[in-house]
Design a protein around this nucleic acid. Structure first.
Lengths: 189, 189
DNA sequence: AACTTTGTACAGTTTTTACTGTACGTACTT
DNA sequence: AAGTACGTACAGTAAAAACTGTACAAAGTT
């Protein structure tokens, strides 16, 4: 049911309530490294009763269509919104992914995993180079001591990132919801 | 064992290896919403063989002491570095928190939890206002329909945030490590 | 094929964030 | 108590990011 079916006064009342929520969602969106305005856009789509196109978004947000385009693309990259097909309309339509658990999982799968993989790769390479350097100067005790410390630290780091990978895996395959169920256990508020 | 005990050539070799790792750590630090240079600072401290003071950091980073001060404060807020006391020195000394699992947990406990709590509060308030508005115009069917949709969405959101709170709880109390152990299960690389 | 409509690349502008230098409060030293 | 060392607040500057308008490519319509 669209907001525009209401008379002005009531429409304004609903709008005011939504606005506070949208602002908050937008503000907290920087946890995901998403700009405030894109967060607002997300909030707008969240309360929209139907998929929106870029022009509608721009109108509501009082921002340029270009900005809407880039904003939506960011949200699409994170799978926080989906493109929707609707016959009759030539415009691209978008709606939010209402399954926030899924959005949470996707965020880690997309952003964190990439970072983790890159870190592991770099650390592996650095460990190799360290080993090589050590072999090249076998009789340098001081160097050996330095390298050993560095290696210990980097091995620790790799172990951590591998743990992070396994954690993300439990997110992606949904196992996390066995351990921390969506429904709260009885007796907890 | 300090790097400066080595001759120039070998010191440079070690430095080069460390540098790549530090750059990567710094770059990936934006996952935590931390500026690149502060990420670098973290990387520097990570490889330092002893706690550092602001002047030393500034020298290594070729940046102002003021920047080091604010950078360190950011890292302290996230508990990624710790202040260290050392008798004899009047300067403040800092070292990284080498327990990265703990840093991970702290990050969520500090940054995500705050956001979650604020979201829940705002949603609760909005739900109340929605209810009030509904009662004030009991015979407005259209309004009722709109409000009902909004309420459904907001209740879903609250449920999600409560799940997130429980997830963060399992991080903080360490339960997560029972489910996703730090040591990988046998047979996995 | 000419004409619309739609989304986005790109260059330029505005706004925000990061960084620096100075200046000052606090606390230690003599 | 005067002097020195240290860390940070604050104002100004430099750099980065967000946003806009124009221009154009792709696809649809007549």
């Amino acid at each position: 049911m669209g907001l525009y079916h209401l008379d002005d006064e009531r429409q304004a009342a609903v709008h005011k309530i939504r606005k506070r929520v949208i602002e908050n969602i937008g503000r907290n969106m920087d946890l995901y490294g998403i700009p405030l305005s894109t967060g607002h856009l997300y909030g707008l789509l969240y309360f929209a009763d139907k998929p929106m196109n870029l022009d509608e978004m721009g109108q509501e947000m009082k921002m340029s269509k270009t900005s809407m385009s880039t904003g939506v693309r960011t949200l699409l990259d994170y799978k926080m919104v989906n493109k929707v097909w609707e016959k009759g309309s030539r415009k691209d339509l978008y709606e939010v992914e209402y399954d926030w658990y899924q959005s949470f999982v996707d965020f880690f799968d997309i952003k964190w995993r990439k970072s983790v993989e890159s870190n592991i790769m770099v650390l592996r390479k650095a460990l190799d180079e360290t080993e090589k350097l050590h072999k090249e100067h076998e009789h340098d005790e001081v160097l050996a001591a330095v390298l050993q410390e560095d290696q210990a630290k980097m091995r620790e780091a790799v172990a951590y990132y591998k743990w992070l990978e396994r954690l993300i895996d439990t997110f992606v395959d949904g196992d996390i919801f066995n351990y921390v169920p969506k429904e709260p256990p009885e007796g907890k508020s």
